[in-house]
Design a protein around this nucleic acid. Structure first.
Lengths: 131, 131, 131, 131
DNA sequence: GTGGTCTAGACCACC
DNA sequence: GTGGTCTAGACCACA
């Protein structure tokens, strides 16, 4: 549950990213109440204004909802979560393939490299690949 | 050969990225002279100082070398180019797998999605995946 | 605390050199905040951009770290500082011995000259050396 | 007899430096005729104008002399060569000690490091030093 | 004509 | 107020 931030991107953006991932991966389950802004701030060591900004963005996307008296909750709408998860995944795939083809790898070479990278534990006799 | 820049990253960084790719993919071949700083500036519509900064970074990496009065050249050392290409590829793979696992996909699921995405033309009977 | 620059080397390089020395010698202690870029510029009479460039180089080396909105700080990692100090010292020694041997001095002659030069106050009866 | 030049200093300056060293170390003995400018250019792969400029500087220092019809010769004046050798050596020593004290080493520590560095072959049982 | 450096001044995002 | 980036324009050494 470590909250670490790197210097090359705005903190609020990193927060959006990390919370987003926790929601689509189910770590923050649908309908669950999020920590209060104050609690978040204490937990992350970040200025409450920055927390606020991140949560506002997540609310705009539709991943979380504010109930004015009782706090902020992960949306109950499983479709939204599912759609966003898929959208994010496709975006990652497109970015990855774009980067690889830009470096002169064909799409199938890129896919092969992924397979070798993920399967290298159980298939030691495979050629080393990556060339 | 279009040079387009997006607002979310510094121009010099995008220049580094794009030229890097042209070198490792062979579009800028080893030993070839790069356009002069001024020519680059004219071609891209970017200030010469910004070009300079990007090229300086590429020189520090070792991808290009400058001969003070005659211009800048892609390194002749094919090993360096090869190593950097591999390094960049691995970085992309790691980043991709990290992002996917963060969203709750296993590594093999991620690899499968890549395969489906790349192979979807010739294997239409495959399940739609991505779920 | 005088900041003087000579014409035979770029100002930013001299800045890197001088600040580097202040860090490895402990004048700028680990974890201490550096003057702001603007303050540095005012103090040295140099353009803020030039300061920026020098500090960026120090950051890349690992001697300083920047916290985007609060300033730049000397690294807390004493090991890095120690390593760089040693590296710089070795570099000086190598350069010195290389220059001396190039002029026809043996390494031991060079060492003797150093000893005479440093010890000349308390050992006036020594031969004048340097011949 | 390799002539290698680095990019961070003007070639003519590197030429001055290298020929200077060959004279004070006796590789180019007093009274000996230097290669012609053309020969020098061929040997080093450098533009004859650049050779010319370097030799002019050496002549101004007094290390070489031009006899208009027959070429350029190393000076016969052994005193000049000796004086310059000593001057250069002192300069190296001063620069070295200045750099080391700037990094927080005392002059005697610097001398010790030199001794250890030069004597490390025959005195393996010495403490590792350099700390 | 080549790259390298510096300045002045402006704008921006972040907190 | 902090650092980061970019531009415009100028000057210099080198070959």
């Amino acid at each position: 549950m470590g909250w670490t931030f790197e210097g090359d991107q705005p903190i609020y953006a990193q927060l959006v990213y990390q919370i987003e991932r926790k929601i689509v991966s189910g770590i923050y389950a649908p309908g669950v109440q999020l920590p209060t802004v104050r609690a978040f701030a204490a937990e992350t060591g970040v200025n409450p204004n920055t927390i606020q900004r991140a949560l506002a963005e997540l609310e705009q996307i539709g991943l979380i909802q504010t109930q004015s008296t009782s706090g902020k909750f992960v949306t109950l709408d499983a479709d939204i979560i599912h759609d966003i998860r898929q959208m994010l995944a496709e975006e990652q795939i497109r970015k990855f393939l774009f980067a690889m083809t830009n470096m002169g790898y064909t799409a199938t070479e890129a896919a092969d490299l992924i397979n070798q990278y993920t399967g290298k534990d159980d298939e030691e006799d495979e050629p080393t690949g990556m060339c």
